[in-house]
Design a protein around this nucleic acid. Structure first.
Lengths: 318, 318
DNA sequence: TCGGCTATCGCTCATATGAGCATCGTCTGA
DNA sequence: TCAGACGATGCTCATATGAGCGATAGCCGA
């Protein structure tokens, strides 16, 4: 998925081509003539531009929020914030983008300079970052290590730094994987100065944004990163979802498993103490996991889309 | 701009078509077959989808470079290269470091073994050297004498030698000040073998990197090195900026002044003949000087930061 | 130094696409 | 009722584009 964009000159060239093609509506041949390139070169640049994420195409009306559903959801689960994006599209990438956009707008609205913002690791958070243009100046803290996936571009590691740059606030980030082979390695990593620098901030985080992962059915980056045998034993222990690396059962009770000690992330108790944790959920199959996270008190705000909200409402308590 | 999307059914149809076309990458003909539409209908739906804003195309990059601004700057001034570092920080030292880093990357990318690299003297070039780790093997030529400042450490004199070491190429450097007390001294110094060895190379330099100095407002190492009385008379002569020791007026025309004969540096004509001269500019106050250098043909590439680029674009020709 | 490997480039040719035009149905006002 | 206006549709044909191929150049290990 992530193509190499080369150095800065290459990058700017690619952007120039993309701008002329997509925004100015010129033909590839015109662009080729203008920039003294072959039309094939232009086509290839555009191809990399898209596959690398330099050019992003969004479909759907931005910011269309289903106010009725949002308010029902907020009431049903006693949430601090509930935003339901009204989308007819069930394409994962579109849902993610729209939820990301709504989350970005919510964050811009509710974060103040007195906050300390924590960020988990999820593709929806990358989508949020992509849509974020403005944020009150506040520190930004990385809550978990990274999980690389073939379908997520490498620069996602820069999530915390990017958001902090937009916020013009300090960034507490580190480069470490979310899951390591053994508990000892985790201990060693946690003692790394830059990791410790971030974890020390966990207690002062006032608002956090996390992705919601489902284990049954499996739609979770954490689940995918665990070997099949361990997946089975964790499911047997009752794990049904995860938020920011914290494993939860169907009722939202945190599950402590051998895996827990091999993860670089905020622990359940600390996550629960954060005054406001906004979960991003897309794909209605994840609704039970979101329900668990809310009931367990790990998530107090939700940004999601129509079908997800309906699924949640269908199983609302009382 | 906003076209009518019709009722909800129409909207869904348009969104479906847009999704298949832009996200799934299907051809219009395929979509037409699938949805029982004519390919013309599909094309028209896509057209409305774009003009109505249902489909939005973003060009951006999560990294350090503002690709859109870079590309616009490149177009506006017909530059060979334009790199705009996306920074919200306006602290001089930070800007210098970031511009230096981008310049180092650019140099690594565009310098080949066939090039002869010329280097001016500026603090941004020191920052560039500090970030430079890799360079095609080529000769490196010193274009100006040095100017010592209390706030610049002595080792800056080693700029050319350091870069040449990284490039593993020959270094044409000399130890001489950029400004000397009188023309005779300059003549004497220019006849020094090691100085002559460098100046003989000026004609073969193919790529050069120079700092951009502004005289009004005064942000220039050269300006600072000149006594107040002479500063005033040079300003009266029209000097508004300098690149690599060449004094320029507001339109980028080289100014010959008494000072010119007291400087050890490449002369205006020779600088102008260098096929590619990359100017480094930071601090938005210097934008008019950069504009002059570009319009005068003394600089054909620019590495700078967000606010500088915006200032330049605001006064772009035409 | 020499194959062999790989990345990059531009080509051919079949296919996809857009500009502009003709047609058709519908609406409107006399 | 009908002429005229208008929008929607699908056509022709010239042009733009993509898939796949072969040439070329740089690179690396023997």
């Amino acid at each position: 998925m992530t193509a190499d964009l080369g150095g800065p000159a290459q990058l700017v060239l690619t952007a120039t081509v993309a701008r002329r093609y997509y925004l100015d509506g010129k033909s590839k041949i015109e662009i080729a003539d203008e920039l003294q390139l072959s039309r094939f070169k232009v086509a290839r640049l555009l191809e990399t531009a898209r596959s690398s994420g330099l050019v992003r195409i969004h479909i759907g009306h931005p910011g269309e929020i289903d106010v009725v559903l949002s308010s029902e959801l907020r009431d049903a689960y006693q949430l601090q914030h509930a935003i339901v994006v009204n989308t007819l599209d069930e394409h994962d990438a579109v849902l993610r983008q729209q939820v990301g956009l709504a989350a970005a707008e919510l964050l811009t609205e509710i974060v103040t300079t007195d906050d300390v913002l924590g960020l988990g690791w999820a593709r929806s958070l990358m989508a949020m970052r992509a849509e974020l243009t403005q944020l009150a100046s506040c520190p930004v803290v990385q809550l978990t290590g990274a999980l690389s996936r073939p379908d997520v571009d490498e620069s996602s590691i820069e999530l915390v730094r990017d958001v902090a740059r937009i916020a013009k606030g300090p960034a507490y980030y580190f480069y470490a994987p979310m899951i390591v082979p053994d508990a000892t390695t985790a201990q060693v990593l946690l003692r790394q100065p830059e990791v410790a620098r971030a974890t020390e901030q966990f207690a002062s985080v006032t608002k956090a944004v996390v992705g919601i992962g489902s284990w049954d059915p499996p739609y979770s980056t954490v689940f995918d990163a665990v070997p099949a045998a361990e997946q089975a034993s964790l499911l047997k222990l009752g794990v049904r979802g995860d938020v920011s690396g914290v494993l939860l059962d169907a009722d939202g009770v945190a599950v402590t498993a051998p895996l827990t000690r091999r993860m670089i992330c905020i622990d359940a108790a600390a996550l629960r103490r954060i005054p406001e944790v906004i979960g991003l959920g897309y794909g209605p199959e994840k609704a039970p996991a979101a329900r668990a996270a809310i009931l367990g008190g790990y998530v107090s705000g939700l940004v999601t889309h129509t079908s997800f909200a309906r699924a949640l409402l269908a199983q609302a308590p009382r």
